[in-house]
């Protein structure tokens, strides 16, 4: 069996060597340029967003409650900014800053009352399920 691509391959190698010998420059600069430029930019773009997404998850998991509140405030600020007065917007931004500062501090601990409330809720869910399913 004759390999179709083998002569082509040798031809390319010969072409490469001759090109370099004559021109003193590697052939296919445009391809290399393309790879170094657009392709790598694209790859970095993807990589950047993937890493940012991963980073976002880590950030959220560090303090989920406050993180959600920050996100909520950010979205609200963006939505309402065109309609409200600049003064109010400033107020909003200040509020956001405050939450952000709180974010770096220690996690809020659930108070005793909240814990008991949780227990009652838990119990209620149980009872609700039990009432719904038994009949």
């Amino acid at each position: 069996m004759i390999l179709i691509d083998e002569p082509l391959m040798y031809a390319f190698v010969a072409f490469w060597i001759i090109w370099v010998a004559v021109r003193r420059k590697e052939p296919g600069r445009w391809l290399i340029k393309f790879c170094e430029g657009p392709l790598m930019t694209f790859a970095r773009f993807i990589d950047f967003y993937v890493m940012r997404m991963a980073g976002f998850f880590v950030w959220v998991s560090k303090n989920p409650m406050v993180a959600l509140r920050i996100k909520e405030k950010e979205v609200r600020l963006k939505v309402e900014k065109p309609v409200i007065t600049p003064k109010k917007a400033e107020e909003y931004e200040r509020g956001l800053e405050e939450v952000r500062i709180r974010y770096t501090k220690e996690l809020p601990r659930l108070s005793l009352g909240a814990s008991i409330l949780l227990i009652l809720l838990f119990f209620l869910v149980y009872l609700a399920m039990y009432l719904l399913t038994v009949h």
Binding site: D5, M9, F12, V13, I17, G28, L31
Partner: peptide, 11 residues
């Protein structure tokens, strides 16, 4: 693929 190989190994 082989041609591309040449292009980055030969330099």
């Amino acid at each position: 693929a082989a041609i591309l190989d040449v292009m980055y190994f030969f330099p």
